[in-house]
Write a protein that binds this DNA or RNA. Structure first.
Lengths: 270, 270
DNA sequence: CCCGATAGTTCCATTATTCAGAACTCAATT
DNA sequence: AATTGAGTTCTGAATAATGGAACTATCGGG
């Protein structure tokens, strides 16, 4: 901040500083409000946003006017509905999802269990699709959700596709939370990744939630501009370890089908 | 734009001009890309955005860096995945939806048909929730979608709650597309609205899609800061006109329950 | 009823970002 | 080699964002 330094930091060694000007500041606010677990008052936001009051007031006003935030009757701020509209379009037209869809259905038919499709986004997995058996689905509860990479089948599968440097960068940027007694640590994760690279399958053996297991396989574009995974998930009593092994191959096959679908396209327009 | 006018327009008679500065311009771009039915090249966007190239280039860069847009391998722009994450949080915590949820389930149980919850947003209805029977659900295909007001049960129900001036403003701002032979025109819509106001129920008799009917009832906050509706939808062969009448009351009851739920809260924090 | 406190809004000179146009690079076409 | 089309980078000038302070509204006691 002073005029005398600016020598050590300059090498843009720290590539994590976003350069998105006004938009970036607004997105920080949007994140604050959407990540809160209840609507926030002006003052609550003020406390965490580190902006002067006048500025914050105008920024929130703009976000609200655009429908990205909503002001409740009591003046508190909540995420706005415009986000839903934007997201539903984003989802409906997502190329990867469209290509994967039939393969997910086939995999669901074959296994009878829930099938997931997810992509790596930063240091999380975002679920893009979910095909369940016959129970009514609460879908938004899963799709679009950002979940940890180190304790989901899709997450680990995705990681396994990355070159070591990107892998390391991600692992070191994440704080590992212990969800169950089986949740991995950075070290055990690294070991597992190398297993996955050999076998082609990732497993989640109750690492995120007790009683839930899954088999996954990586899906990635040739240039690794994106990596993700497909998985079959179910209750531990049905997904015995033998079952997991049994479905490892079909899951891999589905992943391969999706990848070959991507190469052919929807691709270079028409 | 010249210095000599700026006299007639000043009375902000035209209140539709947004004042959201930089954000507004960026949201226009985001809308262009999300509304397109395939990814757009730089030049395509340039043609419709009416911005100088340099400017557009930076704006798209910012949107991309924030994950609101995505650049495909071939350089085209598509909606970004960050939208999904934001939307899923917005949905999960939506107060109205949370309050309505149990009533929607009850209504589904009672009727055995698909139940919808939607809110009015500008001149469209956005679906907030959907409870289906036992078929697997493709949920994003509906939730979050902005649909026309004049040919959906929820839309017409919502309209009926509005005072005439707002109703007129909306009706005159919409262009009526004829989806089926039963789709309403502005005039027939007005007549229907007054029926709905008397009976408390809106019907959709194959006005949007042939073979699909629905009964709906309005849900609104006391100050009309938001209006929406609940509906029961199903195939015409099951939803005979008698059935529609039979379910009119339960739907109204559900709407009332939701409204009384809103008055009590989740409301003034805790 | 008044006081003090807390919450939210408005104003405006200063400053930082964005703007617009032109010049430039790169690749594909002829 | 020359031309066109697509995308990127650069610049002073224009515009919008900033932040501090003054202002208003609302609430809870005493």
């Amino acid at each position: 901040m002073s005029a005398t330094d600016g020598d050590i930091m300059d090498k843009n060694e720290s590539a994590d500083k976003r350069e998105t000007g006004t938009l970036g500041k607004l997105m920080v606010l949007l994140d604050i409000v959407t990540h809160a677990d209840s609507p926030m008052r002006f003052t609550d936001i003020l406390a965490v946003a580190g902006q002067p009051r006048g500025t914050l007031h105008r920024q929130l006003g703009h976000l609200t006017e655009e429908g990205l935030l909503e002001v409740l009757a009591d003046g508190r701020y909540a995420p706005g509905l415009r986000l839903l509209d934007l997201a539903s379009r984003s989802w409906a037209r997502n190329e990867f999802r469209l290509i994967a869809e039939p393969h997910l259905n086939a995999l669901q038919q074959l296994t009878g269990e829930t099938v997931h499709l997810g992509v790596l986004r930063g240091a999380s997995v975002i679920y893009l699709d979910k095909v369940e058996g016959s129970q009514p689905v609460r879908m938004y509860s899963q799709i679009g959700n950002a979940s940890p990479i180190y304790c989901t089948g899709v997450g680990k599968a995705a990681l396994s596709a990355l070159p070591d440097e990107r892998l390391d960068a991600i692992i070191s940027s994440v704080s590992f939370q212990r969800f169950t007694e089986h949740t991995l640590t950075p070290e055990t994760l690294r070991r597992e990744i190398s297993d996955i690279r050999h076998s082609g399958n990732a497993f989640d053996r109750e690492e995120h939630e007790v009683g839930i297991r899954c088999v996954a396989a990586p899906v990635y574009s040739e240039d690794l501009s994106f990596v993700g995974g497909v998985s079959v998930t179910g209750p531990a009593y049905r997904l015995t370890f033998e079952r997991l092994e049994e479905w490892a191959l079909p899951v891999r096959r589905a992943a391969e089908s999706i990848m070959s679908g991507m190469r052919i396209g929807l691709g270079p327009r028409r």
